[in-house]
Design a protein around this nucleic acid. Sequence first.
DNA 1: CATGAATGAGGTTTCATTCAT
DNA 2: GATGAATGAAACCTCATTCAT
Lengths: 211, 211, 211, 211
Amino acid sequence: MMGAKERREREREQRKSHILDVARELLLGKGMNATSINQIAKRSELSVGAIYFYFKDKEELFAALQLEGLELLHSAVRQAVAKKSTPEKKIRSIAMAYLRFSEDHKSYFDIITYFLTSPETIFPPNLKNVIDEHGNASISMLAAAIREGIDAGKFKQVDPRRQAIILWGAFNGVIQLKKLEKTILGKDEYRSLYAEALDRFLDGLRKHPQN
Amino acid sequence: MMGAKERREREREQRKSHILDVARELLLGKGMNATSINQIAKRSELSVGAIYFYFKDKEELFAALQLEGLELLHSAVRQAVAKKSTPEKKIRSIAMAYLRFSEDHKSYFDIITYFLTSPETIFPPNLKNVIDEHGNASISMLAAAIREGIDAGKFKQVDPRRQAIILWGAFNGVIQLKKLEKTILGKDEYRSLYAEALDRFLDGLRKHPQN
Amino acid sequence: MMGAKERREREREQRKSHILDVARELLLGKGMNATSINQIAKRSELSVGAIYFYFKDKEELFAALQLEGLELLHSAVRQAVAKKSTPEKKIRSIAMAYLRFSEDHKSYFDIITYFLTSPETIFPPNLKNVIDEHGNASISMLAAAIREGIDAGKFKQVDPRRQAIILWGAFNGVIQLKKLEKTILGKDEYRSLYAEALDRFLDGLRKHPQN
Amino acid sequence: MMGAKERREREREQRKSHILDVARELLLGKGMNATSINQIAKRSELSVGAIYFYFKDKEELFAALQLEGLELLHSAVRQAVAKKSTPEKKIRSIAMAYLRFSEDHKSYFDIITYFLTSPETIFPPNLKNVIDEHGNASISMLAAAIREGIDAGKFKQVDPRRQAIILWGAFNGVIQLKKLEKTILGKDEYRSLYAEALDRFLDGLRKHPQN
DNA sequence: CATGAATGAGGTTTCATTCAT
DNA sequence: GATGAATGAAACCTCATTCAT
């Protein structure tokens, strides 16, 4: 049989994915700079060289992590929007999916915002493009829902894409507040803040808000 | 005279502040991990030992930076709110002051969000408390303005403090989008997004928004 | 037909030679130490294992390169001397052939002097013998021309072989000066230096130099 | 007393020089690429970091070695030429000094030709300039002697500087042949080859060679 | 007070070589 | 014959921190 090659291929993917698992865990625990290839190697029970066999670079490795996350997010958003009828419901559903994503796939979410916010590590252009494209996909779904609302006469005449980006940014900002739990915020308070932020923005978006 | 002691004191503060200047510059250029004490020493034309005399730790040094930033922010916010009459004007003024702060004192702003978002470096509890208190001060001013609006019957019956936190989070989130300039955003587009986010939020907050 | 075996043989040689091509290119671009088997493999679109099938060692591979070079040189020298009549013309022709060889086959020339001068990599005895024999061949042709001149009464009574070695050494030394271009030498000045060195040596060799 | 600073200074120089000793020894034994900072550290009983405290770079370290060598050579040449009367005696004296230098300070000599001939390691421009200047100094003394001979009517009307460079190159080339001892050359044969090369060259330089 | 030499651990990366498939 | 995954050692270099002076 000639399944040998395919098996190799599969094993390769599995190892790669295993390495990514370990890397993700470490990255989130200690940040990118404090996460060393040495540690990744040790934890994945591979030699350092093996890591470099699968990933040309530390950079490439972490970029792969980010891509994984963005893909996962995109599919979550796609599902969220799927069976919803009205634009507002779609937006709410996406928003809640995003919150859930940030909790269920905390690791991936953190990676995304990690790279979004950290001033260090700017990926080389080609990588950056791929990454941005992936991010774009999710934003576009949000924009589509907003456009629908505008077309239906429910929302103000705003630029749907810009509005989507604003919304996404605001969401991120509120979710980040989670880090302030135990100091200025109570436990899980950020969730209700998130919900309220969503309300406020929808209120602001609607044409005739029903006080 | 016993001015000698005071002079000593003053020199001490100056040196400290000089070190912080250098550290801030480096931190923002290359991130905390890539900023080494040795580099700070070289750039500030002091010996490594001297740095360690003024700051017990690398950690303490960077925490000091954050405090500086929060203080600066607080005074900016205080000034912004000072001579404004209506609650909405106050909010707008604070918001714009925050945006300006993020640009004029980019260094400090970045430091604040750097520590807010990065999973690395969690300061020891005592330090963290001091830091949070400082952050609180600015938020309280925003909350006060919102409360005023509610009391005046202009805004909905929301919790002012919560609303302030949401707003602040959202602002941060939108400002962070600056990093997407040149990929999914045009140059300085984040500024108009910020303004629009503010509009939308205020729309959502008002009792009878005038479409 | 039993051409299968021969075809195999031929393919083997072709692959070997292909590998050598790639290795030579890399060696000259970055030096021996910086040229890795992995790189050779990648560039020749072969697997690492394949390289090791054709060459037992990194050492063996680079020794093969040197042999190639010496053979090429020998044939250049042979051609140079072929259709020349007088001893002096032969010597001049060989000298110029050597200079040309150092330029046209820069790669091979560099390899030869690389191994001649670098203290690293001393080949195991057996290899070294093969290499020296090859080098000898070219020197012998030079020696023959000198002997001819002596026998014809044109040159002083010197030991032809020793003289040939001296000449070859001096040539190498002058050609190496090429590296000083742009610092103490002008562009291509080493060529005229080479010519002049040849003149000076021939002057010194002749019995009655005509000022 | 305030000799403390000076003592420090002196100790610093001593350590630096100690490191260079070790580095030189290793470099000559195994070539530059095979000589690692790790090894230098181990042999000098210092930590790796300490080496980097004294030398910014591997490059800087090896450049320092080369400079040392060139200075030593220059002083040897200066002494050689000092008490000689005729131009030819001066040239012979310099030549023999160079040969002696190559033997007595083999380490330094090898370093010089190592960097002269190896295709790898080209120092950054500024370093290269310093190095070339130092090399120039010795060549100039040779050129001066040749010019003297021309002015005295003993030598042909050649360009003294060019002639000096040629001579130096040729010497290098012949000395390099030492490596062929035990294969195509007998023990120490290169010394007599060197002497003969010198004779031949002077013969070629003289106006009326006395056969 | 201040210096700067020194350390030890750890960072990223590359490599020659082997070997199961 | 050929592949390529894996290793272990070693390369260069940086860093936070200490401590004798």
